[in-house]
Design a protein around this nucleic acid. Sequence first.
DNA 1: TATTTGACCAAGA
DNA 2: ATCTTGGCCAAAT
Length: 108
Amino acid sequence: MRTGVVAKVANLSQSVYERLCQVPKGKVTTYKALATACGTRAYRAVGKILSANPNIPRVPCHRVVMSDGRLGGYARGLAEKRRLLEAEGVTIVDGTIAEFERLRWRFD
DNA sequence: TATTTGACCAAGA
DNA sequence: ATCTTGGCCAAAT
């Protein structure tokens, strides 16, 4: 049944987490890209989903940033998010991801 | 069921 | 450059 095209998902959260988990270390993605990859345009809902379950270390929520390259938000605090990203080799200058376009992860 | 809200986005002023 | 506005769609209330 998966035609591989749209595959709309009732459980957006599960789809979001699944996509997010495929983002490799040292790379980042955006709320919009994530939503689009899941076949939806609910950019804001994605952020809400991530905030709903931020305690899961299995899900690298810290790799999700804004389309502008800014950090966006993090339930545990932006300082923590920044630290985690930098620990993966991502440089952040004045709250913005350096080489953002280059570090962007592309979904299939 | 209807209204409000949100870890957003893009375009205007 | 920053600030405001309208829009987006799923989830919470």
